[in-house]
């Protein structure tokens, strides 16, 4: 799910930037340092939408650098256990398939794919029902439920399932829309 939240970060600025453009430089630095990063706590920071507050700077002993506490509004993407979302399949193999929902990678193991769907290797590996009507392959759109998340320092991985009511394939590329 995407959220709009307020975060704070301490930005260090070199004294050479002190002048009429101090604020611009600070904002530029916030964007540079936070956009595109990921933390386990807040998820992926997709975009900063507004700088809401710049606090008083504090000169650091010895270096002359100044740290400013900056509050900013941002759009983050944070997956939760139990959340249901739509995703695009990126890779299929006999262990299961990988899907992407925005910046996050989700793995669906073959244990969490309905039993009536089987792996079929070939040019385009896929999971399909025996009648071939439902087929999950690369670029398929799949609705899944997140059952677990693993948080690394700079990335979040999810485990998903499509073994539940109203989950599974949404649109198939071969179905022609």
């Amino acid at each position: 799910m995407f959220f709009h939240i307020v975060l704070e970060r301490k930005i260090q600025l070199h004294p050479r930037h002190f002048g009429p453009h101090l604020r611009d430089k600070l904002i530029e630095k916030v964007l540079q340092e936070v956009e595109g990063t990921c933390s386990g706590r807040h998820g992926f920071i997709v975009a900063v939408t507004n700088i809401s507050d710049i606090g008083k700077g504090l000169i650091r002993d010895g270096t002359g650098f100044v740290t400013f506490p900056v509050k900013y509004d941002c759009v983050v993407f944070r997956p939760f256990r139990g959340e249901i979302l739509e995703s695009v399949v990126t890779m299929v193999n006999k262990m299961g398939f990988f899907a992407e929902a925005g910046p996050v990678q989700i793995f669906v193991s073959n244990h969490l794919i309905p039993d009536d769907m089987e792996f079929q290797s070939g040019d385009i590996p896929c999971y399909a029902t025996s009648d071939g009507l439902v087929k999950i392959q690369k670029d398929s759109e799949v609705r899944l439920k997140i059952v677990g998340t693993r948080v690394d320092v700079s990335e979040i991985f999810c485990i998903g399932t499509i073994k539940d009511d109203f989950l599974g394939l949404i649109g198939d590329p071969t179905a022609g829309g």
Partner: peptide, 9 residues
């Protein structure tokens, strides 16, 4: 990259 992927999504 995060921005681009999110926008596409």
């Amino acid at each position: 990259q995060v921005f681009e992927k999110s926008l596409q999504y």
